[in-house]
Amino acid sequence: MRIRPLAWMSLPLIAGGVTIGCRQDMQDQPKYIPLRSDNFFADGRSARPVPEGTVARGLLRADKVFYTGKMGNDFIDRIPFPVNRDVLLRGQDRFNVYCSPCHGRLGNGLGMIVRRGLKRPPSYHIDRLRQVPLGYFYDVITNGFGAMPDYAMQIAPRDRWSVAAYIRVLQYSQNASINDVPAEMRGELPSQNAPAAEGPKK
């Protein structure tokens, strides 16, 4: 069969038409995905700042004690919900993520960032901090203290209480004596004064 010259000549046109059709409209749809920028707003953010005073559904902070750690003007010295092993493990998890970079995994204030030049926070194991009520830790996490910035954005309110509970665990553990260990379990302890493992997380 002989192909007509006209057909040959239309080939580049067809090829052109096919490639013009190759657009990225499905890949890049005119919609907002998280943190996509947009020139519609002067600051370029599609994620709009929440207007002051807005309360999202389910996030009304009516329980003042829970959300401030205070009863009246005084810090409460309890966790405002039942504490069990899961709460302490959650506290440990959050502590190791958000607090240990400075406070160290033992709470002695010798975390990695401190070793790189940040102001050393006090150890949790000094008398003053062993005496403070639990609500104090909640308040410091929420509002910051001294050189420490607040962690309100990074740690949810319930988790702040879990961290406060875990700080107590650290305080007990670092001030424990051999008499606190049941006699039948003492054999399982490593030798006395073994150096505590502390260092960058693997």
Binding site: L35, V97, P101, M112, P149, M153, P200, K201
Partner: peptide
């Protein structure tokens, strides 16, 4: 080098579709 956990900056990775790019405040 420093051993900072992913979640220190990418705070919403456990609760959201989006892991979260840290706001400048977290850098600071």
């Amino acid at each position: 080098g420093l051993g900072i956990d992913c979640r220190y900056c990418h705070t919403s990775v456990e609760n959201s579709s989006f892991a979260g790019i840290p706001p400048t405040k977290i850098c600071m």
